[in-house]
Write a protein that binds this DNA or RNA. Structure first.
Length: 261
DNA sequence: AACAGACTCAACCGCCTGGGG
DNA sequence: CCCCCAGGCGGTTGAGTCTGT
């Protein structure tokens, strides 16, 4: 019945790690490096399960772990990322250097979860005030479906610049429209080729980034070319303005599509 | 000072995924 | 394909600590 345990639990230590065990594990990994967790305890002389060793190292012993309280900046970032990614703690932790997924998960469960719940009641918490944009209806993304798994994407759709030259529209209105279209047309990992065919070739910008996650694309990629090629924001001459634009875009996603990514 | 309840967070559990054979 | 294994992940647990009475 059920899955067999990752290792024999007989004769193994459980519960809190002692300083001695920490020292053995740290020294072993310093010399031999991470990986091969299952065999590590035996080779290092630890009476622990391999998984336990891995967890202890990743969440506590790693030299780059940041100790201390979560700052307000980090807190805001966590909230925004959670808004975009849901309970994808490892992804969120990847954006917070020195923080672990376990730490962020605990912090969320004990602090932010409640805060956000309270905030939602008043509709003011975790909403960008710097980039207020009116809600644009979107049947595809306005559902209340909460994704619990990351969805990979290989393509992100932006309208061709020529589409921007519509008469009788202010620049701001147009910018909103373009942003809305961009969000609406994020092409989630397509399981059938049919949906993909619906897109006209000249309307599709393939970032050629492979199977990176939407979050990675939004947060990591060089946004400069995207901004300049697609006229979504003010022209970028450097990474700083591109970064500002990227944050605007994230704010936009955050504002319009709470929990839908 | 003593107790109970609330809170925190390290550790564990079991499932999922991807790679190799 | 299928199976196995290692590693990774999110949810849950429970011991220790804090706080209020």
């Amino acid at each position: 019945m059920g899955r067999s345990p990752c290792c024999s639990k007989e004769g193994l230590n459980r519960g809190a790690w002692t300083g001695h065990e920490d020292k053995i594990l740290t020294e072993y990994i310093t010399v031999h490096g991470e990986g091969r967790w299952r065999n590590l305890p035996k080779r290092a002389g630890l009476k622990r399960c391999g998984k336990s060793c891995r967890l202890r190292w990743l969440n506590y012993l790693r030299p780059d772990i940041k100790r201390g309280n979560i700052t307000s900046d980090e807190e805001e970032l966590i909230i925004r990322l959670h808004n975009l990614l849901g309970n994808r703690w490892s992804l969120i932790a990847g954006r917070l250097p020195g923080r672990t997924d376990n730490e962020i998960k605990n912090y969320w469960n004990t602090n932010l979860g409640k805060k956000v719940k309270e905030g939602n009641k008043t509709s003011t918490f975790c909403r960008s005030t710097q980039n207020p944009m009116p809600h644009l209806p979107n049947p595809k993304l306005d559902s209340h479906l909460v994704r619990t798994k990351a969805t990979k994407c290989t393509k992100l759709f932006f309208p061709h610049p020529s589409m921007l030259q519509l008469p009788n529209k202010s620049q701001e209105e147009e910018k909103e429209k373009v942003l809305a279209d961009a969000v609406m047309n994020v092409q989630m990992e397509l399981t059938t080729g049919d949906q993909e065919k619906q897109l006209s070739a000249d309307m599709l910008t393939d970032f050629n980034v492979g199977d990176i996650c939407l979050s990675d694309l939004l947060l990591d990629s060089d946004f400069t070319n995207i901004c300049n090629n697609h006229q979504l924001f003010s022209p970028c001459s450097d990474q700083t303005s591109a970064s500002n634009n990227l944050h605007s875009f994230i704010s936009f996603l955050d504002t319009h599509h709470n929990n839908d990514f």
